[in-house]
């Protein structure tokens, strides 16, 4: 009797293991460059996807170290999701070149460039290194406009459908829900920001044009004299004079910049330094793409009041 029960228990355990394994195997493995793309992938793919983000939410997305451990993730991925526009040019090419995975190479079914169809801002008409680290295809920080999030989601959905057409209805249903949520929330966020329309602010780096455009801010200058060039004394002096002249209240910076320069300008002008989140996971309270804007809008409102 005991033996029989043992056999049944073993059989059940075996079946259970099979069930767990088959559901795990069925999951689509997605590697994204940024946590924002990971969050949107999870919202579109639901339990059907296992999404991993290479960069953390508090890391400068231009400068991520291409650690070999990421190559392992990419080697097994079904889908790779990238911001594109050369944002990740310093670290994605060495990782993809070593991934040994045809599916996720550019042109493969599993390669998703979320910049496709994004209405780009600041596309230069000419490019020279004299202008600093400029992006020749346009400013790549487009995920900071929630309505661009809808285009990102559509690109991710299309990629998931290409590699996993059996779950098309799940992905497309989730996309519809995502679009509706973003529309409703964007309405809320823009309403909250309406009293501050046209407010002038200073930013550390030129990564806010999409946010600025959507929520009616006016970024008048940067602490960096040119994109990617650290603040210089002459640039800080220029900014101090601009803040005093235009009564600017806020300096926006990001989690990965040293705040010494911003603090120095603040001390000399009385302006407030606000560290905004550039990505999901910038702090523990920002767990989804929706939380990112909830957090940033609240920070900006509090600083401008």
């Amino acid at each position: 009797m005991t033996n029989k029960m043992l056999r049944i228990a073993t059989g059940l355990l075996f079946l259970w293991t099979l069930v767990i394994h088959s559901s795990a195997l069925a999951q689509i493995k997605v590697v994204t460059t940024l946590t924002d793309l990971q969050s949107i992938t999870r919202l579109i793919g639901g339990d059907q996807v296992d999404a991993f983000a290479i960069a953390t939410g508090f890391q400068n997305p231009h400068f991520v170290d291409p650690k070999p451990s990421y190559i392992l993730k990419l080697a097994r991925a079904d889908v790779f999701v990238t911001v594109g526009l050369d944002l990740e040019i310093g670290w994605v090419p060495p990782l993809l070149n070593s991934a040994r995975n045809a599916k996720i190479q550019k042109g493969g079914d599993g390669y998703v460039d979320t910049s496709v169809n994004i209405p780009l801002l600041q596309v230069p008409t000419s490019a020279s290194r004299e202008q600093g680290d400029i992006h020749i295809y346009g400013n790549p920080h487009y995920w900071l406009d929630p309505l661009n999030g809808k285009i990102i989601a559509r690109n991710i959905c299309a990629g998931l459908v290409r590699v996993d057409p059996d779950h098309r209805s799940l992905y497309e249903g989730n996309l519809k829900k995502f679009d509706e949520t973003i529309d409703a929330k964007t309405k809320e966020w823009t309403e909250k920001m309406r009293p501050f329309a046209g407010a002038k602010v200073i930013a550390y780096h030129n990564e806010w044009p999409y946010f600025e455009q959507r929520f009616g801010l006016k970024i008048v200058d940067f602490l960096e004299p040119k994109p990617g060039i650290p603040p210089t004394p002459s640039q800080l002096l220029k900014v101090i004079n601009e803040i005093k002249r235009d009564h600017i209240k806020v300096i926006i910076t990001s989690p990965y910049f040293n705040t010494d320069s911003a603090d120095l300008v603040a001390r000399n002008t009385g302006a407030k330094v606000v560290t905004l989140a550039t990505s999901v996971g910038a702090n523990d309270t920002i767990k989804t793409y929706y939380d990112l804007f909830d957090y940033d809008i609240l920070q900006v409102m509090q600083a401008l009041q």
């Binding site: 400068n60 991520v64 170290d65 990965y256």
Partner: peptide
């Protein structure tokens, strides 16, 4: 050792 938040610094 490279702290990811300040890996350029």
């Amino acid at each position: 050792w490279k702290p990811v938040q300040y890996n350029v610094l």
